[in-house]
Every structure is written in C-alpha cells, then in structure tokens.
Design a protein around this nucleic acid. Structure first.
Lengths: 189, 189
DNA sequence: TATTCTCCGTAGACATCTCTACGGTAGGTC
DNA sequence: GACCTACCGTAGAGATGTCTACGGAGAATA
C-alpha cells in the first residue's frame, strides 16, 4: 500500500532552489525513478509550466541535484566537523550526531541506488564517498590510530552512518543512545 | 547518462520464479519505481502478455518480491551461519563474507528506499531488520560479549554490511581484505 | 489424431509523464 | 499609465506504462 504523496503546500512563487529542495524530498522517499516533474510540482502546489521556467528539462534538474548533494550535503558536514573545537573523539561524536540529526533530509540511500544505473550519478557518488572515507580516516588518525586502523574505522563509521540513515534511525526516539554506543565501539582502543 | 537496460536474453518459457528473479535485478538497479512490467519483460525477452499469466497484476508481483526477500534472502544467510561449524568469531567472519559474496543480487538498498513510501514494504523491512539485529546480537553473545555490547556490535555489523552492499563493495577486487579488517574491529575486545 | 493445458504475442483502451507553445498576472520601473 | 520582468497555468502532442481480451503455438495427454 503506497503512502499518500504528501499534502500540497500553499501556492506561492517558487525559486529554483525551492524546486531543488522539493526534489530532494521526492528523491529520498521514492527513489530516482519517482522523481517526476508532475510529482514535484504537486508537492509545491504548482504545475509543470513553472518547472520549465526554472529548468531546461528533467536532466537539468537531476544534474543540479547531484551537485547540490555532493557539495552542500557532504561538504557542510565536513566543514562543520573541521570547525569543531574540542578533543578528537568528541569531534567524531559530534559528526555522527550531526549526520543523524539531518537524517530526515538525506537522500544518500536513493542516490546509492541511482548510482547503480546511471554513470553520472555513479561518478558523483564515488567522489563523495572517497571524500568521506579520506576525511573519516583523518579523524581517526587524529585520535592516534595508526593509518591502516584509522582507515578501516573511518570507513566503518561512514558505513554505519549510511546504514542507520537508510534505516531511518532518526525516527527512533533513543537515537542519541544508539549513536553513542556506536561511537564507543569505534573510538575504543 | 543512463546505463543501457541490459541485453535481452534468449526467448524461452519463463516460470513465475524467473519473473521474480528478474524483478529483483530491476529492483536492485532502478529502485521500486523502476519496476515496470514492460521493463522486466524486456529483460526476459518476453512481453506483458506473459506477465499477466503468472501474476494478477503488478502489486501481486511486488508482494511476492517482498516475501521472497524476507524469507529467502534474509533467512538463508542466517541458516547458513547456524550450520557453520567452527569458533564463534569465525562464524561471524563467514557470515560477513557470505553477505558480500551475494552482493550482486541483494536489493537491500532499494527495499530500504521503497520502505520510506510504502507501508507494506516498511513492515516487511522492519521485520527483516529486527531478525538481523537479534541474530547478530546472539552471534556476539556467543563470543562472550555482554548483552548490551553484543547488541551494538551486532547492529554495527549489520549496518556496515548494508552500507558496503549499497556501496557495491563486491566490485572492489580487494573486498575480502576490507571485510577482514571490518571483522577485526568488530570482534576485538 | 484429437484434445487439453500451458504459456505467450498482439491490439487496444486508458492513464501518466515529458516537453512545447502560448497566454495571463502581479509587482516593480520609467 | 504604459511597460517590463518574473513566474505560472493550460492545452496538447507524443512517449511510455498498466491491464484486458483474445487468439495462437507447442507439449503433453487421451
């Protein structure tokens, strides 16, 4: 049984970014094949006529979505962690909590599936994952784990967070506790 | 740029199970919204006329896919681990390798996305995850981890494997080494 | 040989989706 | 007040998808 496609919002003028954010929602909930102009328009309370004012076509939108995901949604987690003031293990915990806190808007799972049948998405996905792995390894090196160990612990943190995101951990009321216990295993020497 | 939808196989009579397996492939590669009668038929070298002999409609097929995934693809990993003869930590390693070895046919990521917009898929997904968590916790209890610790390590193993599956680890030539290093962190006291 | 069962193709009604063409409206500008 | 810009709706062509109706082929059976 399919869930209802969400209430239509009040009719207002939408910017290109409004369309982009609405697309991220649809992408997260229905997957790439569910990203249809009419579906996004319905969510915004608009019609396809508006869409084609902001975007050349559907591919134009999808390209923008990929770039936005890679730059903003991956990058700002890293920048946030870099600006964190405190001991290395607390920075890791901060990052893990940050990811889950944003879970509701992360389309990572849908993009991973998308990458299985689209070469552009696959390239973007690989770049983003490489960046995550390298940064995560660095985080654990700062904790004085030797490079090979830091690398696998960083990778395991990324995978655990992706798994929990896919799993909708943020809907579980005790998610901070779950994250805390993941964290303890990862930073334990 | 979308990848080509795969070469059509030789025309032959197909069983209900053939349709089911082909559907799993499409589901894994394109997501639930990409599961279309014509798309699966094209993959089998058949037409929709054949489909409606085996299934009442598309929902009939999707229900079967969910059951098959939950029973066969989740259950047989567990049964395989239960029959494993050897020390507890080797059983865990065996299971982890088994999951990645079957990566190419696992639609877990697509089903997780599916579960975000479909209540039937969500129920099935939750049942399967519960079963995985409980079994994985038991695996680590057998390794003499205290229940709360065994629980989080089991959960982390499931999440790591789901992440690596989503990430197509099996396409990486050094995947046994990656799994081995994950394993070492998880079973380390 | 005649019949039956199993499986499949084709044609077509109907729905949904992409994209173009074009007309309309509201707010700011000269 | 006339004009312009930004944004949106509608109508419709063409593609794609679901599902029904029906007819046909091949293997098994009588």
């Amino acid at each position: 049984m399919e869930a209802e496609p969400r209430i239509i919002e009040k009719r207002e003028k939408a910017s290109r970014e409004d369309w982009l954010l609405a697309t991220l929602d649809v992408l997260r909930e229905r997957g790439i094949e569910g990203v249809k102009v009419v579906a996004i328009a319905r969510r915004l309370g608009l019609t396809s006529g508006s869409f084609y004012w902001h975007f050349r076509n559907l591919k134009d939108l999808l390209d923008s979505v990929l770039l936005f995901w890679e730059d903003a949604l991956t990058g700002h987690i890293i920048e946030d962690a870099l600006q964190f003031q405190g001991p290395p293990e607390e920075r890791i915990r901060h990052l893990m909590n940050q990811v889950i806190r944003e879970d509701a808007s992360r389309p990572d799972g849908a993009i991973a599936v998308w990458a299985k049948s689209d070469t552009d998405a696959a390239q973007c996905y690989r770049r983003a994952m490489k960046r995550r792995f390298e940064f995560s390894a660095w985080l654990f090196e700062e904790l004085d784990f030797a490079p090979p160990d830091a690398e696998i612990r960083g990778r395991m943190m990324v995978m655990t967070l992706m798994g929990e995101t896919t799993n909708n951990l943020h809907l579980q009321e005790d998610w901070p506790d779950v994250i805390d216990r993941h964290w303890r295993v990862l930073v334990d020497k």
